[in-house]
């Protein structure tokens, strides 16, 4: 799952019938430091998120499962509205050669 922010809405009247009735929002994926990842993408949503909300999303097959039992042709779905998402910054991410122990 990945974090994202809803930055707009998308209206498409002519679309696959399995998408009928689905709300489509424009989402900018981002990391915990709110830095953008890629370009804004269209996502269906199942939790009534609004523009400006911080959300978390699922991609590919999981997105189609978000509207189970209907499994439409979607590859990005908003599955939760985030209240808080805090991350510590100075974390050593380098895995050195040799032995390293993590207490």
């Amino acid at each position: 799952m990945i974090l994202g922010q809803v930055v707009g809405t998308v209206v498409a009247t002519i679309k696959d019938e399995q998408l009928a009735g689905e709300k489509i929002l424009l989402v900018q994926l981002m990391n915990a430091k709110r830095e953008k990842i890629g370009r804004p993408l269209a996502a269906i949503e199942v939790v009534h998120a609004g523009v400006g909300d911080l959300v978390f999303l699922v991609r590919s097959r999981e997105a189609a499962l978000a509207t189970y039992p209907v499994q439409g042709p979607v590859d990005l779905a908003i599955v939760g509205i985030v209240d808080t998402a805090e991350a510590i910054q100075d974390v050593e991410l380098e895995l050195p050669f040799g032995e390293s122990f993590f207490t």
Binding site: V79, V82, D83, T84, I88
Partner: peptide
């Protein structure tokens, strides 16, 4: 991976 934070979400699937 390193755990760097957590997410609190009340309205979710």
């Amino acid at each position: 991976a390193k755990v760097v934070g957590n997410v609190v979400s009340t309205i979710k699937h």
